[in-house]
Design a protein around this nucleic acid. Structure first.
Length: 306
RNA sequence: CGCGGGGUAGAGAAAUGGCAUCUCGCAAGGCUCAUAACCUUGAGAUUGGCGGUUCGAAUCCGCCCCCCGCAA
């Protein structure tokens, strides 16, 4: 198989490595242009670009992928494989390769179409998710399904852990399914569109903790949204990131967001239970345990998150 | 020159020109049926670095190094 890969995040790396190990030919990689990043507007290359450079693979970084019409058409690739590219790809481009374009999606479609399927699964407290391999059409995550693979979500699993496991599962499914698709042994099955659900792009406000919510919801939010965009709340008007929490059953205090000491460390009250703050980061400060943070807070007993 | 917070004992924080303090941890001892308890004592600091102002600088001024939040 001769293929082109389009992707930006590290999600696609295990898949690329697996496909190359299987003997498939990677023609080149398409990724987003380098963008100013960080406090000093430093230019930072996307993870896929770094990987490609380290492996002597050609990298193209168009502002719009349609600029690459000829680059994609001329080498007559078998497929264009897309994973977390971050741009809408027009149909003219999708149809260029002999067998069209294939997308790897981090959920079992038609559930969680859109930008943040992995976060959505954790956020909703799902116990199962998976990977879908689908043929791309003009609508987002809408095309015929070639294959899916399920994966159980562990109760305490974080976004990063799940993300990594799903990226490895992607490598498996591509290695197994793509060759069969090219030889016609597998054909796409249309999705059940009436069952489709969608995930929105996560915004900063989605990551703010509502202390009047249930402890389980807050736990899921913390698991799903770290490190990006980073779950947060405020104390005395200053932002505090909440990186890791554990549920502490029982209600002792009425005010939501109220801070108090426990044998296991600093905790804060939610509506139906409390959360032990295992790892926090005040604005301007380093990551620390809740207990360490508490050592420096004056009048802790009258403080509460808002 | 994108906006902003910060560097003080092993950790987290006070102290805005005058003996460097508090909480946690650590060490020794005491009290308790018991402890995330309490009491006593102790060790641990060149206050990021260099220079300047001053009788006196963590504190004021200048330069440099480093860490981080926002934004992108």
């Amino acid at each position: 198989m001769r293929f082109i890969f389009a992707g930006t995040t590290e999600f696609g790396i295990p898949t690329l490595e697996k496909l190359i190990a299987d003997g498939h030919e990677l023609l080149f990689v398409i990724t987003q242009p380098d963008k100013p990043f960080g406090r000093k507007q430093e230019l930072n290359a996307a993870p896929i670009k770094k990987w490609a450079q380290a492996n002597n693979v050609r990298v193209l970084q168009p502002d719009k992928i349609s600029e690459l019409h000829d680059d994609i058409a001329l080498p007559k690739p078998d497929v264009l494989l897309v994973a977390a590219y971050g741009q809408i790809i027009p149909k003219e481009i999708l149809d260029l390769p002999r067998h069209g374009s294939i997308n790897i999606h981090g959920s079992v479609l038609p559930k969680y179409r859109g930008a943040s399927p992995i976060q959505a699964a954790i956020l909703h407290g799902d116990t199962k998710t998976g990977i879908t391999l689908l043929q791309m059409d003009e609508k987002m995550d809408h095309g015929p399904i070639l294959a899916t693979k399920d994966l159980d979500i562990a109760p305490e699993e974080t976004f990063q852990q799940l993300y990594r496991r799903l990226s490895e599962l992607s490598a498996e499914i591509c290695s197994q399914i793509l060759p069969q698709f090219l030889t016609g042994q597998i054909q796409g099955e249309p999705q059940e569109h009436s069952a489709a659900t969608f995930t929105k792009l996560l915004r900063k406000e989605d990551a703010r903790i509502d202390w009047t919510g249930s402890a389980v919801n807050i736990l899921n939010q913390v698991r799903a949204l770290n490190p990006e965009p980073g779950t947060w709340t405020t104390l005395d008007g200053k932002v505090v990131k909440i990186l890791e929490v554990k549920i502490l059953p029982g209600i002792k205090i009425e005010l939501p967001g109220k801070l108090f000491q426990t044998p296991e460390g600093l905790a804060a009250k939610a509506s139906d239970a409390s959360l032990i703050l295992q790892s926090v980061q005040p604005a301007g400060g380093n990551v620390m345990t809740g207990a360490q943070w508490a050592n420096g807070i004056r009048n802790l007993s009258v403080k509460h998150f808002i």
